[in-house]
Nucleic acid binder design. Sequence first.
DNA 1: GTCTATAACTCGATAGAC
DNA 2: GTCTATCGAGTTATAGAC
Lengths: 204, 204
Amino acid sequence: MVKKRIDASAEQRILSAAKKIFVAKGMTGARMQDIADAAEINKALLHYYFRSKEKLFETIFKEAVQGFLPRVNQIFESDKTIFEKIEMFCKEYIDQIRKTPYLPIFILNEINQQPEVLVKKMWGNRKPPVNLFFAQVQREIKQGIIKPTHPAQLLMNMLSLCIFPFAARPILEQVSGISKTQFDALMEERKTIIPQLIISSIKK
Amino acid sequence: MVKKRIDASAEQRILSAAKKIFVAKGMTGARMQDIADAAEINKALLHYYFRSKEKLFETIFKEAVQGFLPRVNQIFESDKTIFEKIEMFCKEYIDQIRKTPYLPIFILNEINQQPEVLVKKMWGNRKPPVNLFFAQVQREIKQGIIKPTHPAQLLMNMLSLCIFPFAARPILEQVSGISKTQFDALMEERKTIIPQLIISSIKK
DNA sequence: GTCTATAACTCGATAGAC
DNA sequence: GTCTATCGAGTTATAGAC
């Protein structure tokens, strides 16, 4: 039961390599050999640590999704106005996606492949505190702070505007002829543009 | 060289089945056997009509993308104000995606898998008339009709708000606990909400 | 724990009869 | 054109030595 802990342990190297390969090629496109090569270990070790490709994938998928949420949850659970939360959310989210720009399309695609299975595995029993957000929106509507708006529309707008450009990046760059650096600059600008856009649409 | 043209020809049935399977499972996830079954023909016939899986995929992919664009192109090329074009685009686009809601995530994912190859195959030499749109935006900015805005930001906003909800549909439904019918109603509402949102952000 | 070798199986592709 | 049968490459997974 004793494992090497010199350098990164084999298990850790596998996890990191598997994440890289699965995110790049998807569940069906990734091969165990690719992962073994990236981890610089033997293929058989993958099965020693994680019984099967599917188990390994599940581990990676959970990890990927959960690494994506906690900071965002903090914002929703905090004690701020909707306006403040929207602004914090967009800035935080864009910065976070920038670090792992291929994660959104990976998650979206895999969930579309097997929605019931994966959605359950992602959150188990506790979902992100969207209900808190929805409740706050409805409260502030009643208080006359913001215009009547379906909270789901608000959420869709925030997520769409922050995430989609990364998922469509190759198309956008090609179609509109913008460079990598221009794209980065545009995304930086979006950290202020998006909150403005959304807030001005609901502010009374 | 004579082919059966009774009912749908084998070739047509293959194309339709292949589209269904490829869109649902992606290039790597789809199997030729699945496609043959869906088309109710033998696996060998797939190779008779389309030499290989890759060729068949390319055919489907091109068809899928090109079926997605012409109506949209018409709008951009038309002789309207930016405000009118934005409104027409969003309404038209949402209606179109509704008919094939799995197409966006399929296209986004496949392009992320092999960006250079597929982007070229999609448009060959002629890209969608995004440059026309960009030019018009810049013209109307100079004329003082709309606020200074990077045209690419405007395009990203339109595409994001229209497309993303479909790509993230399973997550959105699960996380925010909305039903299929509620989702449909929300998307119908978005046909007017999105243009309002975007136009009010650029109107002087 | 880590490796080599190989079993067991899937899948794209082809040969060849009709 | 359409089918059955089968090949051969590639992949997941396991057995067994060290």
